[in-house]
Simulated scan of single mutants.
Amino acid sequence: MFIGAASGIFAAPKDTLDAQGMKDSNRLESLTFFRFIAAASVVIFHYGRDTQFYKLLPSVLAAGSIAVTFFFVLSGFVIALSSIKKEFSVGGFYVDRLARILPVYLIALVLTLALIGLVGKDTELILSVLMLQSWVSPYPLSLNMPAWSVSVEMAFYLLAPALIVLARKGVGSPVVWIAVSCVFWLATQLVLSSINQSEFATLNPSRAVDIVYYFPPAHFCSFVLGFSGGYAYSRLKAGGAYAQAKNVVLFILSIVVIYALSKTGRVINDFFGEKFAYGSSFYAVVFLFFIYSCAVCNHAIPRFMKGKLSTLLGDASYALYIMQMPVYLLLSRFYPSSATGYELHFWTYFALLLAVSVSLHILVEKPIVKAVKKRRLEANEKIVVAA
């Protein structure tokens, strides 16, 4: 199953407040680093499952089929942080989002088409260009397969402005937001589980998979949970040394819980008598626990995770994700694994993908995002002068 994430997931939160009530250094560097770890684990899951390195990974990093939930929760968290306490307009929100995701998305799509051909793929192309492939079965994995999650992310963007407006108006306390989003998550899991066990899934297995794992509404609860967590984090008050020590303990506990759950799927199924969709938002609550704990412990994260190299890798993680298939196809065409063996082929591929991703971030993503923001700022200044 191809999994992944969209640009909102990888965009770093700006000018947030840390748990001490002080300005962060423009972003939560710990989340930037973990974006890279998550994106790299997805790539290894897709193309490196026969490597010795993969066999040594802990189950939570080797279980690529659940990583999509982490990305979607992180997306909601980051969008909340980057929107609630700064100037916001619906138009500006969509311009910023599209400027971030479209350029590299289209580069990946064009390269994929050049490598696999377009004959007989008119419908797939139209849906992919419009980012609607995840809505229509059997097309979620058409063309550049990991891009299905970008389609899901676009659905999140339709929902995000309403959540942002409510949060900015202070409608509901953080506790209420978390509680409501948890109820929404639970209801979603029950629906997905019932689909998994239904006669429809037995008679239409591929369509059921598309609905349970790729259909955007199946993942809305992850985004809403993440947004609620980001809203709660933005309302944090200053805390003392005791609070900070407690946060570190919670962060460690969140890692333990995620690791334990990643190894007990069958036990959970047997206990509840359900067939839960583990790759579709099941882990959203514990991933929010981890992301929130990571945010409040940002000051305690090891320094190497906040360095320039770690930040660069985190910033390039969207390109790392979206380019994984076309780069693999390109390398395999000119340098097949049979020539050198699987292990060397994979690490050559990963090194090339990393170089391509960093280059695209520096040469394409950053300049375009900077130019768009500059144009928007100039347009706003003209409006103010005219008024």
Rank of each mutant, 00 (worst) to 15 (best):
G279S: 06
Y328M: 04
T123I: 15
L253V: 10
V183F: 14
I116Q: 14
L320E: 03
V267P: 00
I164F: 05
T188K: 01
Y54D: 01
D24H: 05
K169C: 07
A316F: 07
S198E: 13
V152F: 09
A300I: 06
E381G: 02
F272P: 15
G279M: 08
A238P: 05
G279L: 05
L143H: 04
L313E: 06
Y157P: 00
A67Q: 10
L329R: 10
L192R: 02
D270Q: 12
G239F: 06
F88S: 06
F220L: 15
Y242S: 04
A243C: 10
R303H: 12
L331G: 02
W347H: 11
D18H: 06
G229F: 06
S194M: 07
S332C: 07
R100C: 07
A387E: 03
P326H: 11
A114F: 15
F34I: 13
M1L: 01
I44V: 14
A201H: 08
P161H: 12
I368G: 02
V150W: 05
L118F: 11
S65L: 09
V68C: 06
L352A: 12
A295W: 00
L331V: 11
V175D: 09
A238K: 14
M22L: 12
S173M: 12
S254E: 07
Y47K: 04
Y231M: 04
R49V: 02
L363T: 13
A67F: 03
L253K: 09
M154F: 09
L288G: 10
L377P: 00
L192F: 06
Y292L: 10
V73H: 03
M154N: 04
H46C: 09
N144E: 07
Q324P: 08
S317D: 08
F251S: 02
F10G: 05
Y213M: 02
I301E: 00
L344T: 11
Y94K: 11
V171H: 13
I301M: 09
F346H: 02
G239N: 13
F72T: 03
D270E: 15
Y214M: 01
S181Q: 04
I291D: 03
G239A: 14
A316V: 07
T51D: 01
L17H: 06
S310C: 14
L186Q: 10
M22R: 15
G265I: 01
L98N: 02
D18E: 08
A243G: 14
V209Y: 11
S262M: 11
L320I: 08
R35W: 05
N196K: 11
F215R: 01
L106H: 04
L360F: 14
I44G: 04
K370T: 11
D18A: 05
